[in-house]
């Protein structure tokens, strides 16, 4: 930052702690912060893929690490964050879409949000159902 020297030293409001000023900012930041744990989860899978490429012994080490209480606790946290991500993703989605009309009336934002949430719920359950059906 190269602020020009100014003899008047005008007041500039500090941005420190800006996100605490308004509940809207907190929600915004919570939504953005979900990305940190999305990245963590992707990296866990990335390591798993790497260990898989190294062979059975290496892969089993990774699989064993997933059983540790620390890992399970972390995954519970990641799961909660993913659920919040799903909600916030569809909450924001209607604001990022151009308005669209159905039967002459503009589709309400809440309708788009809930449609998204329902689709996500169905797909998540479908994945769970398919994987629960695999009996190796």
């Amino acid at each position: 930052m190269s602020a020009p020297m100014d003899k008047r030293r005008p007041y500039t409001r500090s941005m420190a702690g800006w996100w605490k000023r308004d509940p809207y900012f907190i929600r915004y930041l919570a939504m953005e912060a979900t990305s940190v744990l999305v990245a963590v989860y992707a990296l866990i899978l990335l390591i798993g893929l790497f260990r898989l490429s190294q062979g059975e012994l290496a892969y089993n080490g990774w699989l064993g690490a997933l059983k540790s209480p620390l890992s399970i606790g972390l995954h519970v946290l990641i799961l909660l964050v993913f659920i919040y991500h799903t909600w916030s993703w569809f909450k924001v989605m209607p604001k990022t879409l151009p308005a669209f009309y159905l039967g002459g009336a503009k589709v309400r934002q809440s309708v788009i949000t809930w449609a998204g949430v329902v689709v996500a719920l169905v797909l998540n359950l479908l994945v769970l159902f398919i994987l629960a059906g695999v009996k190796p």
């Binding site: 999305v38 989860y41 866990i44 899978l45 798993g48 997933l66 059983k67 890992s71 399970i72 972390l74 995954h75 519970v76 990641i78 799961l79 993913f82 659920i83 991500h85 799903t86 993703w89 569809f90 998204g116 689709v119 996500a120 797909l123 998540n124 359950l125 994945v127 769970l128 994987l131």
Partner: peptide, 18 residues
């Protein structure tokens, strides 16, 4: 991640280990 992420996290991080 919104559509299937939660299920994947549950299965790989909680479901399989437990």
């Amino acid at each position: 991640s919104a559509l299937i992420g939660a299920a994947l996290v549950f299965v790989s991080g909680i479901g399989v280990p437990l």
